[in-house]
Design a protein around this nucleic acid. Structure first.
Lengths: 121, 121
DNA sequence: CTGGATCCCGAATGATACTG
DNA sequence: CAGTATCATTCGGGATCCAG
């Protein structure tokens, strides 16, 4: 994922950092707390391990996510939001979640919400 | 620009709505108030009229931007943020702006900020 | 062995230049 | 300004490699 090197406002940088199909979904899942790789793979519909690893790597580079490896058998790795950038970007995502919900409502598609069991933000 | 039809959380919808290189920049510019097409073209570095029109059209479809046409000569058209979704997405963009600025700071690139005359949010 | 991580490639999508 | 062509990026599958 390429981040632009020229930009007019820092906002563009952040936008590049979370662009792509999966990054926001991963961050959104992590709001519930630390998880393992296989946990993420299980919870996120349609993703595979390779995509996950790629996206997590970039999210770590940008400081949104951190990884903890626990030594021993079986191998155990946990991913979580960072206290600073991770938690802050989550605030933006919550707003986006809200906008998405409102959009569905005003377009007569609330049924999707209940189907998916979307929880209040 | 394609918005996905299948998704697990409404957040993904919103993310699709503002994806692409220019949408956030346009919205960010509009926070300063209504502007004309040529005003936007002047203020946004590197964009051309075609891109601008395409992106504005999509932003209007999603309810972030509205267009007002004033009759008379010369023809006058203004674009502005909508009261609801437009103003709300701006809140998310402000957070992203802040994250971008912090990122630049912690990576020893503050000079870019002053060069560009980034105003406090 | 059992996860975790990387490489290579074709297909789909987005950005931009060109043109009428 | 809209339509088309071209070029850069991203998505996603599969094979493969690495480490405990």
């Amino acid at each position: 994922m390429k981040v632009r090197t020229e930009f007019t406002c820092p906002l563009e940088l952040t936008h590049d950092m979370i662009k792509g199909k999966w990054k926001t979904i991963i961050l959104w899942r992590l709001r519930l707390g630390p998880t393992t790789l296989s946990g993420l793979e299980r919870d996120i519909d349609g993703i595979n391990q390779k995509m996950l690893l790629e996206q997590l790597k970039e999210l770590m580079n940008y400081g949104f996510v951190e990884k903890r490896s626990f030594p021993g058998y079986p191998l155990h790795v946990e991913y979580s939001l960072t206290k600073d950038a991770g938690v802050e970007i989550l605030k933006a995502l919550k707003i986006m979640q809200h906008i998405g919900i409102e959009y569905l409502k005003t377009n007569g598609m609330e049924h999707i919400l209940t189907e998916k069991g979307v929880m209040p933000e």
